[in-house]
Design a protein around this nucleic acid. Structure first.
Length: 822
DNA sequence: GACCTGCTGCGGTGTG
């Protein structure tokens, strides 16, 4: 039965406020009234606008609802962030306020008080705003089905943020469950622009039908670049960009509120400190925001933005989401934006007023970033936006879900198998895989049978699978979720205030009395006690900056290709736009000393230096692909002739360094009887696996899988286990499975995730095919070119050796001899 | 003549 809507109510509520009703709003509303699900492509406008509008829709539902319907849960709103839950509550309440208390609305997240929880355990509100994790937790309660029995509609906000990761998969499974209980359930999603909106819709709606609605027309976004004043003295390498400080200060000065986006936490710390040093009068007017700062600190900053007291905030992606509700006039992006979608997301944080242009100035941190900026401009104009890949049947998430459902009322195997297959990510789940997952939760698979704590789910006489032990259930509820973070150390003042968290490895290098920069202050390290580093404020302006181990997001294909296109134009002597004109002198040097790499020309440079024989290549495949490519090529060459290679790679290319000369051209041209086809995609998987330490990579990946699948317990809140303990137990499982349970599908999953996510195998294959079609331009360099130089200063070096020990010793001897001769 | 790369998100017990 379609939902009852009092349509006049929505219209009148809008018109009394003088608000326009857009065609897309009518479309969604009509769809809902006729019982259709769908995805709303919210390409622009703030989240707040959409929430208020949905609130008006819910208002019309409420007006029609019977008294009994009002007293039960009707609508579930899922948001990826706790902070958004509170803001959404306020926005939805605007149109709903006068209907209270008959029609109630509340949030349910980890922040919800225990009083509110027990209130909700008795009766849920009519509208509940929650997170994927809290929803899963609710599904693990024995009375889950009756709690959700009256649910009519589920709205998933920011679906683009969830669909590409395991949180999204968990959401899919939860929705499949709710839909199983109520086949008429409507599902609506809100998504930003993506390259694969249709897949986004499928992932949300599972096997169900639905429509894709185009939201408000895109607002204008203007990408431009702060051009370095003295391009000749602008660094060829580096990622900090402090040379641009004066230009950034001018931008901050001329706007009321500015968000300064940086790519890493340490970069944010350094920029904040430099801004303050240059403008001491801004103390108290500018702030710092990133994921390792304590919640209280971040909330204070968000509050300052809300009230308009802060002039600028230096941040990481921690403010990508959740500032929809804040007034921000200008957004700056320091360093590479990495992707078009990411740049648009950030651009959209500013100029929320209707009709206003969002302008994002890009701030380069090294010369070649001007090239990327020119490409970004073009890609944004053409809306060449990346797709987000939906994970394909991750079994760790399924295993967790099985235990959740067993707790939440229990399940029958066949029934749940059918339900799970209705979730998009598991549409191709085979009977064998299902049986494997079931067996894994029932007896721990082949190797853990003797341990009762891994017999988590058992069938009763009626064939209903349940969790047999209260303690097991408790432990499971404590580890619901798919986010796995590094173990970290708290940083606190001696007087008690929390500042944030940093990684164990950084703290372990500090001596008592050492200074470091964190949370925008210089701190003095006092002592370490129970996973907490105690500090006090220090004087002075210098200190080590903590580093965090973060994700290494490569440059997207879309952006890389746009940059290559700019190089093609430059090779035809077309320098359009201020970025390319500024870059011209540098590209002239590159062309003079060597050549320009383009989509048609594969530039290969070689150089002989004191370090050895260098080879440089610039496929523009992003750093993950270049890492794979470097080791693949080194492996294929070394198969022919033993040699030891060092690697360096960045988003534009890679370097191989060998102590012995290699006749590269014979390899690339397949001359001299060489049978090695370096760019061949034959035996690609085999060669990639052989060229890298695939086992070690899988083992690292397995740590996350083991935690999600519930093999490794992370400890009670407030008494976390250290990194070492967690690492030790997950590697133990890894080893046990490898030795005694080789068919364990979680091991297979670890390897697949490494290949797909860390090495980007698909993109590697595409890159190789592209390379085969490019004309090779080979140059021998007298010195490093503007493209080669950044690779030479990359400090990261990996080694692959097929060289025999005796050869190494021989080489060493020759070197010593050379050094000894005058 | 040179460089300080690595994001984000959630959730939770027991026993006084």
């Amino acid at each position: 039965m379609p939902m009852s809507l009092a349509s006049e109510t929505v219209k009148s509520w809008f018109s009394t406020r003088g608000w326009k009703i857009f065609p897309f709003q009518r479309q969604v509303w009509k769809a809902i009234a006729t019982g259709q699900s769908g995805l709303l492509h919210a390409s622009t406008g703030s989240g707040k606008t959409y929430a208020v509008w949905f609130g008006a829709l819910l208002r019309s539902m409420a007006k029609k609802a019977s008294k009994r319907e009002k007293a039960s849960l009707r609508v579930l709103w899922i948001t990826p962030m706790r902070a958004l839950a509170n803001d959404t509550l306020k926005a939805l309440e605007m149109p709903l306020a006068e209907l209270r208390p008959a029609w109630s609305i509340a949030t349910r997240t980890g922040d919800t008080s225990s009083a509110e929880r027990s209130r909700q355990a008795k009766a849920l509100p009519s509208v509940l705003i929650t997170t994927p994790e809290s929803l899963s937790l609710m599904l693990s309660k024995a009375d889950a089905q009756s709690q959700f029995a009256s649910l009519d509609m589920i709205i998933v906000d920011e679906w683009h943020e969830l669909m590409g990761n395991k949180r999204g998969v968990q959401t899919q499974l939860a929705i499949a469950r709710l839909r199983h209980w109520n086949p008429m359930l409507l599902t609506w999603g809100l998504s930003a622009t993506l390259g694969n909106l249709q897949q986004a819709q499928n992932a949300l709606l599972g096997t169900g039908q639905g429509i894709l609605v185009q939201g408000e027309k895109s607002k204008q976004i203007k990408v431009d670049t702060l051009i370095p004043e003295h391009i000749a003295r602008f660094p060829w390498a580096g990622h900090l960009g402090i040379q641009m400080l004066p230009a950034v200060i001018r931008e901050i000065e001329s706007n009321s509120t500015t968000l300064v986006f940086t790519n890493t936490r340490s970069q944010a710390e350094i920029w904040y400190q430099n801004l303050l040093n240059a403008r001491p009068d801004w103390a108290g007017l500018i702030a710092l925001h990133h994921g390792s700062l304590a919640k209280e600190v971040r909330e204070w900053v968000e509050q300052g933005l809300k009230s308009g007291q802060l002039k600028a905030v230096v941040c990481t992606s921690s403010l990508d989401l959740g500032v929809d509700f804040l007034p921000v006039e200008r957004v700056l992006q320091i360093g590479s934006a990495r992707g078009v979608a990411r740049l648009l997301q950030r651009a959209g944080r500013s100029g929320h007023a209707p009709g206003r242009i969002s302008r994002v100035p890009l701030v380069p941190t090294h010369s070649l970033e001007l090239l990327e900026a020119a490409g970004a401009k073009q890609a944004v104009a053409l809306r060449q936006i990346e797709a987000r890949q939906v994970p394909e049947k991750p079994l760790d998430v399924l295993v967790q879900h099985l235990v959740t459902v067993a707790l939440g009322g229990g399940f029958r195997s066949e029934e749940l198998y059918a339900e799970v297959k209705n979730a998009y990510s598991y549409r191709n789940l085979t009977e064998e895989e299902w049986q494997w997952a079931l067996d894994f939760v029932a007896r721990g698979g082949q190797s853990l049978t003797v341990y009762p704590e891994y017999r988590r789910v058992l069938p009763d006489e009626d064939g209903v699978y349940r969790v047999p032990d209260i303690a097991l259930g408790r432990r499971h509820r404590m580890s619901i979720g798919t986010i796995v973070s590094e173990a970290s150390v708290n940083v606190k003042f001696l007087t008690g205030g929390r500042i944030g968290t940093i990684e164990e490895s950084f703290i372990s290098r500090l001596q008592k009395g050492d200074h470091f920069l964190f949370g925008g202050r210089i701190l003095e390290f006092i002592r370490f006690y129970e996973m907490t580093a105690y500090v006090k404020r220090a004087t002075g302006s210098k200190g080590a900056v903590p580093r965090w181990q973060g994700g290494k997001m490569p440059l997207s294909s879309e952006l890389a290709h746009a940059a290559l296109e700019q190089l093609r134009l430059a090779s035809n002597d077309e320098f359009k736009g201020p970025e390319m004109r500024a870059l011209k002198p540098l590209l002239d040097i590159q062309q003079h000393w060597s050549a320009l790499p383009t989509a048609e020309t594969l530039l290969i440079e070689s150089l002989h230096s004191r370090e050895g024989y260098h080879l440089f290549m610039y496929p523009f495949g992003g750093r993950a692909v270049h890492a794979g490519l470097a080791s693949l090529i080194a492996y294929r060459v070394a198969k022919e002739k033993a040699n030891t290679f060092s690697f360096a790679f960045n988003d534009y290319g890679f370097e191989l360094l060998a102590p012995e000369a290699v006749d590269w051209m014979s390899f690339f041209r397949g001359e001299n009887g060489s049978e090695v086809a370096l760019f061949s995609i034959d035996h690609l998987l085999e060669d990639v696996l052989a060229s890298l330490n695939a086992t070690e990579l899988s083992q690292r990946r397995f740590r996350e899988i083991a935690r999600i699948a519930g093999l490794v317990f992370q400890g009670y809140p407030g008494q976390p286990k250290s990194n070492r303990q967690l690492q030790a137990s997950s590697s133990l499982f890894f080893e046990v499975f490898r030795k005694h349970d080789a068919g364990n599908l979680l091991l297979t999953q670890a390897q697949t995730e490494v290949l797909e996510q860390e090495l980007e195998l698909v993109r590697l294959r595409n890159t190789l095919q592209e390379l085969q079609g490019r004309r090779i331009a080979f140059t021998q360099l007298p010195r490093a070119t503007p493209f080669a130089f950044p690779l030479m200063v990359e400090r990261f070096r990996e080694k692959l050796s097929t060289e025999k020990l005796s050869d190494r010793v021989g080489r060493l001897l020759r070197e010593l001899e050379k050094a000894a001769t005058p």
